[in-house]
Structure formats: C-alpha cells, structure tokens
C-alpha cells in the first residue's frame, strides 16, 4: 500500500506520518528512509528533532539522499546481517517504510551544485524508482511538501524545481492508495483512506 502525506512547513506532517506508519505497520519491519543531506547546524538540528520523534518506535534508519530504490538492497543487506526471520512460506520479511522527505529527494536528484536534470527528468526518475521500491514493501508512506502556494516567482532553476515536485506529487498521488493532507497537525483525507 502506498500512502502520500503532504503539508507545509511546521504543519505537523512528520509527527503525524511517524505515528501513522507505526499504526499501520503491524508486524512489519519498520524502516525510515532519510533523504536529507546535512550541510550545517540547522540541518543537523532538524535531523536530531526527527530522530527524537522516532526514538523508541523501532525504526531502522537508511540514509538514501538519491537513487531511492537502492534502499531496498540496503534493507536486504541489513536483514541478512541481522538474520531476520521471514514469515512461513515467504521469501522476504514484511516491510513498512517511511520516506522523508520527497522535497529533499527531488532537490538532491535535480541539483548537485548546479542543475543536473530538468524537473520532468527528475519526476520520471523518481516515480520509476518509487514504483520499484514499493514492490519490495508492504507499506510505503511518503512525506512530501506543499511548496506551491506562496505566490512568489523565483529564479528559473527554483521554478523548474517547483514544477518538477508538482509533477512528482501528482504522479505519486495517482499511484497512491491514499493521500492525506496535514493541516495544523490535523490529517485531512484527499484520496482513499482507511
């Protein structure tokens, strides 16, 4: 099952997403796919804050700033190393993953110092890789960001990024079983829903 969770900065989407994955994961092994690259103290503080939110919830963290489908190989390697037992008759353990956050993954795929992919190329790559990744998981919850409503015209590469993330969000929502918008910490169903 694929769930997309969207919201603005400070909307409480991360806290909600972490709680939500924990609820739906059941017996699945829980993974946290971290896409943010840390460059400074503020970034580190954000990572620490999210770690704090997750602590005690039993997530296995995988750093995956680009090429998101590679996270699946890392999960398998981790499971081999820990000799994780698979359910009877299954080749692999049940997995639930929380990918946070699509806005960072998109930026990482699109820029590395300079613009390396167009918005559409980025969207195609990410949507393809998410699809591959989701096939190895029972639940995939993706947190993305609403960056679309400030009415500002930015420089050309930022506008390209906004369009790219817009395509990604629309593509993810089309694939998803459910889409939830978080407003002031309150989840509002946009598509599907349990």
């Amino acid at each position: 099952m694929l769930t997309v969770i969207t919201g603005g900065s400070g909307s409480g989407k991360s806290a909600f997403a972490e709680k939500y994955v924990t609820e739906i994961a059941g017996e699945s092994r829980k993974y946290y796919l971290a896409t943010m690259q840390v460059f400074d103290r503020e970034g580190q503080e954000k990572v620490d804050r999210h770690r704090q939110l997750r602590s005690g919830k039993g997530f296995h963290t995988i750093e995956q700033p680009t090429a998101i489908y590679e996270a699946l190989e890392k999960m398998r390697a981790m499971e081999r190393e820990e000799a994780v037992r698979t359910p009877a008759g299954e080749a692999e353990p049940d997995r639930a993953a929380l990918l946070e956050c699509m806005s960072n993954l998109a930026a990482n795929e699109m820029f590395s110092g300079e613009l390396t992919r167009t918005g559409e190329e980025t969207a195609d790559k990410i949507l393809r890789e998410v699809e591959q990744l989701s096939r190895g998981l029972q639940h995939l919850v993706i947190v993305t960001n609403n960056v679309f409503e400030d009415g500002v015209t930015y420089d050309a590469s930022t506008m390209e990024y906004i369009r790219g993330l817009g395509s990604i969000n629309a593509g993810l929502a089309a694939m998803a079983d459910e889409v939830i918008e978080v407003v002031a910490g309150i989840p509002l169903p946009v598509k599907g829903g349990r």
Partner: peptide, 23 residues
C-alpha cells in the same frame, strides 16, 4: 508554510514556529 523554504534564516524560523504554534 505552503511555500518554498526561504533562504533567509529568520523567515524560515518564522514559518516553522508559526506552524508549530498552530499545531
């Protein structure tokens, strides 16, 4: 909070803290 995360640190903090106050 529904915009591009600002370059300016104060603007970022203002959006983040306003959002958390709303939550």
């Amino acid at each position: 909070g529904n915009g591009i995360v600002p370059m300016d640190a104060f603007e970022r903090e203002y959006r983040e803290r306003t959002g958390r106050i709303q939550v």
